[in-house]
Design a protein around this nucleic acid. Structure first.
Lengths: 208, 208
DNA sequence: CACGTTACCAGACAATCGTTTGGTAGATAA
DNA sequence: TTATCTACCAAACGATTGTCTGGTAACGTG
């Protein structure tokens, strides 16, 4: 066993799972081979089947643990005692920070869900609609409290925002530049500014 | 030859290229097989090599034609005689509309560039930096003309916006709902609102 | 009619893939 | 000591992959 390859002090199975996330992030799930994962762990590919059932098994685990963490963020925001606009700011901040703190996991999460089987794909779609519903509710509450522009369409603001956050892992590089907290703050401010600032703009537009 | 499979009146080679885009969009480049493409065209897989040199050849053609169209959009905006904020609105509108009018092509473009060889990957990265530079310049011009919020960081606004547009193909469904033009307009207004509206928000923040 | 070109098909190729099997050195437990 | 369990290795498996080869029916051109 090589302690430089094996992580600090987690179980061997977690090492395998972490290696899989990195490999799937680098090559994409379909192009990545079980052999790639095994090499990163430091065993032969057949040996991986001592820890896993299948290649898809590796992928689906990425989604399970991600779902737990996102649920915690939404619950935290729900329990806040603050105006809707502040809840919105907080949600965007926390969700941005999660993307920045889990770059590989986040990018695998929203890029590779097609390769799950039908049952799990349904679960992912349901989860995504949960984010969307949560954010749309937040935006509508902001409107109801008179803090949002009148012509604002919560559905499109929602898609716009979530897509922007999903893109974080594709350009953010860890070393140098601003901290993850600063960037998450900037993202939160941008969304808040967008929600407050669209007012006059939608004058005279015809719904197509 | 089956006229229901073959397109209206373009060359057979274009049929192959179009089929490839659809298959790559549905399954992802790595998971899609040459056989899948051949089936959609209506020939055996070996026959495709009469039209193409390799599988990667199919992919790289997606990028070539996309680059031409995006260049046209940027040139059109550059030639506008209007305030920077209006140029910005126009750029976001046109670029959104392109994504909505080329759903499969757009999603393949920004998801599958990893599977190109090193030379073409470099070209893609250069092109992407071209968008970013173009948009950042536009944002800085808007600031210089006093139309943008003071605390606004053009780099992050740029990443935020481009990621949001890249996400369009992942949620937009063609039938029903608002027209592509309406959505592109809404996206343009959101960006304009965000640029104008971030002013007071960044008070008291410390760069990390 | 002869001839070259177009647009394929049929079949094979080596390589790679995910997965299974049987085995085994070393640690632990009885 | 013997038996059991853990954590692998070595080797093979059938299937699928991208690609190549040789052939050929249909067709336009001289």
């Amino acid at each position: 066993m090589d302690p430089t390859v094996v992580g600090t002090r987690q179980s061997r199975r977690d090492d395998v799972l972490d290696a899989a996330i990195e490999v799937f992030h680098d090559k994409g799930y379909a192009a990545a081979s079980i052999q790639d994962v095994a090499e990163r762990v430091g065993v032969l590919k057949g040996s991986l089947y001592y820890y896993i059932d299948s290649k898809e098994d590796l992928l689906s685990h990425v989604f399970d643990t991600s779902d737990e963490q996102s649920r915690a963020i939404m619950e935290g925001v729900t329990e806040m005692d603050a105006p809707a606009l502040e809840k919105l700011r907080s949600f965007v901040y926390e969700w941005s920070l999660w993307h920045l703190s889990n770059l590989e996991r986040a990018s695998v999460y929203f890029r590779e869900w097609r390769h799950l089987d039908g049952r799990q794909q349904g679960a992912v779609r349901r989860k995504r609609r949960e984010y969307e519903g949560f954010l749309i509710d937040l935006l509508e509450a902001t409107k109801a409290e008179g803090q949002a522009a009148a012509g604002l369409d919560p559905r499109y603001v929602c898609f716009f925002t979530l897509s922007a956050l999903n893109g974080l892992p594709s350009w953010y590089r860890d070393q140098g530049g601003d901290s993850a907290e600063y960037i998450a703050g900037a993202y939160a401010e941008m969304v808040v500014g967008m929600v407050r600032g669209t007012a006059a703009a939608s004058r005279g537009r015809v719904r197509g």
